[in-house]
Design a protein around this nucleic acid. Structure first.
Lengths: 195, 195
DNA sequence: TACGAGCGTACGTTATCACATACAGACGGC
DNA sequence: GCCGTCTGTATGTGATAACGTACGCTCGTA
């Protein structure tokens, strides 16, 4: 048995559970799916990895699409972070705090964070990551107060409710020039193309 | 080439489309996925049916889960929501209104929109596109009230402040079950660059 | 023209998938 | 007890999945 078979053994377990839930024997499912019973046994025990062809036939025998069968095995297409279980970002700079709102999943393409800036405060101090990976884009929505975006040497004034999008791989930071607290939402979209 | 290979050739075509959309050569994808370039070529042309092991590795190299990759093939027709078509205005459904906050730029990878749901209202009525392009991910942040997310037949209760991330190419809609108005921010991250 | 670098694909070998057959154990019936 | 039948699994064989290598091809560049 190969290592890979162990890793993605989950489908086998899932197939067996579904088969038994439908009260089918291996030979029953073999007839329904057109896959031999010994093959089904091996797949269920994770001894072999079926081809997409036979996997699709097995799924059909279980009255499922292959993607449905696999989605049961892969962990959730949906993941939730509750309002009270957020990750606090490090407060590298006085007057700046933020929390990351999106779940910490691998392969996440967009990260949502909420930033709070005290009067006069700026994001991205010396210890803070000032930019992101090449090709990344950042979108910011001002939720309260006024904010100044400094991006690549340019200065952009943003008022309450404004939304701005810019290349996140440029050097940038936000500043709160007003006398009141400022809040903004930031969305960092990962760059798709690497070069 | 077997008959079965012809039948489910769709994945191969889809893999090639996705690979080219990401501007990857066969050898690039081979390195990212750990599957040899000749094998990729054969799979793309439908000459062989890969095992679930290598199919999963190929999907990972395309930054997709295998179920996502297969769903693209099974669904056949690809439905795309263009920003221009719904950039403005209230939804077709009573009690649901929204506005798109991000600038209408080409190449925008994340679209931010704010939705308001009256008590009992739902998003995505009969005339509304219920899902997004293949591979897209959606993140929603509940800003006030309570919201129920219906995604792929499952039901998820979201409270004020909750943040949820899910596959936006699944059939989904939001519902406001409570007696008060509900507001949520939605971020749709594009799946892949389109050629 | 010649060259190197990139592309996708044809080739031959090895690993393994998938099958038909055969087996050991559990249950029920005359 | 001795069948007949069901269960899931071990066995051996042919088909093929997956690999490493190498070929023909098209570009820029010298």
């Amino acid at each position: 048995m190969s290592l890979g078979a162990i890793v993605q053994n989950g489908v086998g377990t899932r197939i067996r559970a579904l088969r038994e839930a439908m009260d089918l024997s291996l030979r029953d499912l073999a007839e329904r799916s057109g896959v031999s019973a010994p093959m089904l046994s091996q797949v269920e025990r994770g001894e072999t990895s079926p081809t997409l062809q036979v996997a699709a036939r097995i799924a059909a025998g279980l009255e499922l699409r292959l993607s449905q069968l696999l989605r049961l095995d892969e962990d959730g297409a949906v993941s939730i972070v509750r309002g009270d279980e957020r990750r606090q970002g490090p407060s590298a700079v006085a007057g700046h705090s933020y929390e990351i709102l999106t779940p910490p999943l691998p392969g996440q393409r967009a990260e949502l964070s909420r930033h709070t800036l005290a009067p006069g405060a700026v994001t991205g101090g010396p210890g803070d990551p000032p930019m992101h990976e090449p090709g990344a884009r950042e979108t910011a929505l001002v939720q309260s107060g006024t904010v100044v975006l400094h991006c690549d040497g340019q200065r952009y004034e943003l008022l309450d409710g404004d939304c701005v999008t810019f290349d996140a791989d440029l050097n940038h930071h936000f500043e709160n020039p007003g006398p009141e607290k400022a809040e903004l939402l930031a969305i960092v979209s990962a760059g798709l193309r690497r070069s």
